[in-house]
Design a protein around this nucleic acid. Sequence first.
DNA 1: CAAATGCAGGGTT
DNA 2: AGAGGAACCCTGCATTTG
Length: 591
Amino acid sequence: MNEPIFHFYGNKAGVEGADQIKQVIDDATRGSEYYKRQQEKRQQVLSKVSKMQVELENYHKNEQRKKETKEIIQNKVKEFQINTDRIWAHFDMDMFYVACELLDKPELKDKPVAVGQSIISTANYVARKYGVRSAMPGFVAKKLCPDIIFIPCHFEKYKSVSNIFMTILKKYDDNLESMGLDEANLDLTEYVNNSQVDPAILCENIRKDIFLATQLTASCGVGPNKMIAKLASEINKPNGLHVVEQSPTAVLSFLEKLPVRKIPGIGNITEQILSGLNFNTCKDVRDRADELYIIFTPKTFEYIFYSCWGVARNCHVEFEDQLSISCQRTFSNISTQKEFEDKVDYIAEKLAEDMQQEEKVGNHLTLIIKTSKFEIRNKSLQLNQYTNQAKQIAIYGKQLLKIMQLDEPIRLLGLKMGQLANEKQMQKQSISTYFKKQLDKSNCLENQIASNLGSKSHQISEDGDSINKVQLQQPEQPKPEIVSEDEDSNISNQILSGVNSKGHQQQAQQQSFQQKQQAQPKSFRCPICNNEIDCKGNNTVLNKHIDRCINTQNVIVEQSDESNRNEKGLKKKISSKIESKAQKSINFFKK
DNA sequence: CAAATGCAGGGTT
DNA sequence: AGAGGAACCCTGCATTTG
């Protein structure tokens, strides 16, 4: 019943008095909401495990199925081969953040030191002896090791050391893959073939180079693929090297006794499941792969299965664009709507900053919250336009807040923007599609426009278009009085238009807007936003715009009831539409 | 019915 | 005294959409 929930801290090798450590951690945390949540999760895992056990019992009773499954496994084993053509090395700086700090404070070398305060990023080996670990909260570390010294994070420092580290490694593989500041995978095959150096000697030399350049030690592992190299690098940590020879037998015997937990991708939960079913080492998995096949989904099965046979990717992965940008903060519990909204404003600002810095815009927003009971929830929303503007993000964020129907205190709030696109490309695109549209129109190519519908590029071009419209309209129409004083209504306009309010953009857009005005005086006026729509009699385009417009308008109306005063009747319609929508989401979440 | 979407949850540093 | 991060990626599953 009172089984310690932090059993995983003790599982790492080399910790003395693991039981004692568990006890201290447990005492320090018992009764907290966090602890309760962990207990719950633990129960969930246990019940999952017992279901799996039942499944396995049934499986073992069914000789036919057993025979078939074992055959499948045998075929799989025959199919693959452990490819040992390539030589990979994994370099990993020892206790990197702490090591960097100790460069400046050598007098602390023999004392227990950790970087991070509320949560520990890295601890030195002195502190680790006491059971202090990465990701452990500071107060627990303090219980385990009252003398521990906390040093705040200095990212810039680590970055500059990391640059030196990476520069050295790049001499041996220009395409190296780095995961974080202190780790890198290199494909040494070419280098070794060209230089005919023994990989072990080569890597020892590289480690020396690193030490000379940084005064810091790195550990290294060598093997025929990235996974093996990474696993090998842990064997003689810190300041050590381990080589797994380039042969299938060497790989298999290296993995034989290795706890499955060590395999990257198998974390705390998966380990609990596996150990609950008595899979502890890679050999267990190999021997009873048919059982694994029964209980896991195909992808999960394949991943674990192949990993335990030493089969993993042994080529570089091509660089991929970042998929999302997010920002989240933990704080002391808040529970009023006002506080929630203020947090959304704050996080939206931070997120917008990050996005603008990276020159990205995004089209899909997710609100993430963690309740005071450590339950995580999120809701997401497809936006009507690409944006990276704090105020727009905040408005959508509050929309999500409403959908979420929060009725309990929260301790974290975050926003994540997905479906990213490059801000500059987007501008170019919107301008060029604008001109393209001009051309299309003059040629009366409505078909082209119609066929663009639904495609991503179309979405972009429409958004770009509406940017132009807004810019046009403001000088033209008598501004609603609010505009100048009321920031919100500005936002509303921006939202309507998908405007990105950076100064230089506006200029460019304004220009094209004017040109457009002259060239294309004919257009429909959208009944919702009162903007002109270039639909050229194409109803689909018009309808699509109106749909979108209604969605956008929802946000605005809810957000600032004062805007659009002159459109009262219209507003009512929209509001009722909102209500029905909101109702729908409520029902949906009640399920 | 396949693809797309939304959400929960697992993993990593 | 109280107290357990942030930012990213992927998979699975249910539901919606075309």
